[in-house]
Amino acid sequence: MPQEMTELRDKYLRHDKKFPHVWCPGCGNGIVLGSLIRAVDTLGIEKDDLVLASGIGCSGRLPTYVDFNTLHTTHGRALTFATGIKLAKPTLTVMAVMGDGDATAIGGNHFIHAARRNLDLTAIIINNQIYGMTGGQHSPTTPYGCKATTSSYGHIEHAFSIADLAATAGAAYVARGTVYHTTMLDKLIVQAVQKPGFSVVEIMSNCHIQFGRRNEMPDPVTMMNWFKEHAVRPDQADNIAPDSLDDKFTIGVLADVEKPNYIEEYQHIRDRAKGDS
């Protein structure tokens, strides 16, 4: 295993990039990056053929470290840039990694419309329930009652589920994983990339510095244990009384539907337009 890790590190990390990275010790973002690299390696995608786009925030720095075609865009807009790239060069595999505030607050409009449009993109959303880089302000996924630097009396808004939002908006594939369940996470990312159409993997991740410290989970281990104890597989969920599901969340594949994807549909339009002229 260590040798395999060394090989993957040598193959996929950028060696001309000035490390260290920007993330805090114990940050879940590194686990997501590891999982993403293993998924790409499993899929056998050539580095030249993969585009990794991001928005702004701690997650936004993730592409900087890997040796793909990488793009660090504006806040919330990663999917719009990814849309242009995929349409201009459909042979590329295009992924976008985003944070919870990035993808569903400032980028919420782009997110639901990308899902509705069903262009073949993979959205990896690292949900740490907080704005980390800017200092711990509450995000659309900060749970009710939790403390953040802009909700020091306890959060009075209600969080929404990113995965449910994606599924309702029409994403072809929706899954949720955590940085604790890494074996499952590797598989979910592989499936998401393989799925034609818009796919989403929401990843529950730890920001023990900005979220955990204010909410009685001040270190990565406590947060990992929280993920372990509160994550429920869909098949298990059926056997648990609804009352005790309140503070739990489901992990695994949550939606997987067949529908025509945008690239195929647009090719039909091109064929028709050429036939007409």
Partner: peptide, 11 residues
């Protein structure tokens, strides 16, 4: 955003 993305892809 899409226009910039497409241009980065060479179009």
């Amino acid at each position: 955003g899409a226009v910039i993305g497409a241009s980065l892809a060479g179009v």
